[in-house]
Amino acid sequence: MAETDLARTEQVERPLSPHLQVYRPQLTSITSILTRITGNALIVAALLIVWWLLAASTSDDYFAMADAVLTSWFGDLVMTLSLWAIWYHYLAGLRHFYFDAGKGLEIETAEKLGWGCIIGSVVLTVITLFLV
């Protein structure tokens, strides 16, 4: 029997592991996916900043246009959210180093670290806004 099973080459219906939709959202899973979302979303701020730098290097008119976008209410919103995103990604990255070392993986500790990322990122965002 085993031999015939192994010899079968056609696609078989394999059981799927429980998927995202059937998982109750948990602090650990939410803080993990937020790391990915914040990291990838930062491309928006990066595009704006590189464009703004190019404009600054080119001419007064071009700079005026790019600067108007970056310092508009919409630009402020994107930059402020990106500031939070980069601080979140920063703390979550540090947490990843800790996890990679095989530490902090007990549920209680992992959840504490998750809250640390969330609260810490908001605090650091506010501090940065005060400094600039």
Partner: peptide, 12 residues
């Protein structure tokens, strides 16, 4: 973050 934040908002 701090250095860039201070630069952003100035004139050219």
């Amino acid at each position: 973050l701090v250095a860039f934040g201070r630069t952003l908002g100035g004139d050219r």
